[in-house]
Nucleic acid binder design. Structure first.
Lengths: 195, 195
DNA sequence: ATGTTACGGTAACGATCGTTACGGAATGAT
DNA sequence: ATCATTCCGTAACGATCGTTACCGTAACAT
């Protein structure tokens, strides 16, 4: 079937190449040739795996969602009480190390591209609304007895806080060191009575 | 000197064209031809005003800063007490109407481009740090007696909150209507004891 | 061993963009 | 009125990218 390597290995290789190009060069530099160069192959292999560049973009968007889900589940597994789970899920969005910073950079790129790309916009809406319902459930579990409107407002504020912190840290890491990001999150949770 | 129109009129026309293209098409579609098309002229005029595309980008970045400053001063002028000034300056970053939504879209585009463009990154750092010092001053005036670390942490959180809200609203206006944005800001200010 | 099929490398085409060169036209000076 | 200069439209060149077509080659079946 294959010439040298098996199919899953090549898929891993190409996914890694796509992620690397996306993190270092940005969304508009995610070209067929750049991916082939990062993967150490020619454009023929890339075009044999993806029908066109758009499929490459959607695959990268899927990678972003998949990695988000993996990191989220890994965080939730270590939580003991509802408030710890809430903080863990929120802190997962921060840009505190190389991986999470890359994650924030890629997320920022797709968000910017979504404003003039209906398909990417719909992907963003779907995933972001799913995350909001998840966070509403976590806030509701962490603060039983709160009215629904207060839960929703708090969830909106917390999402905006961590996403804003992540993109600001991605663009200016020195001004937003990991400690400052975590301190801002903890202070807000404390202010909301959710610490 | 000029053929048909005077120079300031043409500068206004080109600035408006640059802003329109940036808001509707995004940063990577800000081409010489697109600007000429939006301005109703040919590429010759655009290339006669800007030496190259990079100058066009920097001019657009300058426009973003200039409009931000204008909106900020207009808000501060109407504030009566320090807490009203703090809220007014923060609410200025929200994406609650067509103008502010466009503003958020353009800001988002430049932020995403800054991660792989040193010059744009430096422009972002400069302006964002200046804004942070301004907000630290406003928080300090709104909450006299707070220790410096608490003021700084609160300012970081508030900046991340409004910027995150703005970009999320820019990408999904239906999920973040103006009321939801303002409610999230007011709830956070109340939680911090700054309402 | 040979034919077949899928895999993937190579090259070229059309489109788009930044940039440059050139030419015509209008304005101000003499 | 004529000339020089500035302004700006036009066109072309080189580069890059997406896409397609073509072709060699390795793996499998017979």
């Amino acid at each position: 079937m294959s010439r040298t390597a098996d199919r899953p290995t090549q898929e891993k290789l190409l996914s890694r190449a796509v992620w690397d190009v996306l993190a270092e060069q940005g969304l508009d530099r995610l070209t067929i040739r750049a991916v082939a160069g990062a993967a150490g192959c020619t454009t023929g292999l890339v075009m044999h795996r993806f029908p066109n560049r758009r499929a490459l973009l959607l695959h990268a968007r899927h990678l972003l969602h998949e990695r988000t889900r993996q990191r989220m589940e890994a965080r939730e597994a270590t939580a003991t009480d509802p408030r710890a789970a809430l903080r863990a899920v929120l802190a997962q969005s921060l840009a505190v190390d190389a991986d999470s910073r890359t994650h924030a950079v890629v997320w920022l790129g797709f968000l910017a591209a979504a404003v003039s790309d209906p398909e990417l916009a719909e992907a963003h809406r779907t995933h972001n609304r799913a995350w909001r319902t998840r966070l509403i459930r976590l806030v509701s579990a962490a603060a039983p007895g709160w009215p629904e409107s207060r839960v929703t407002t708090t969830a909106n504020a917390l999402i905006a806080l961590v996403e804003g912190t992540a993109v600001l840290a991605a663009a200016d890491p020195e001004a937003y060191p990991p400690d400052a990001q975590r301190t801002a999150l903890d202070a807000t949770l404390t202010a909301y009575g959710l610490a």
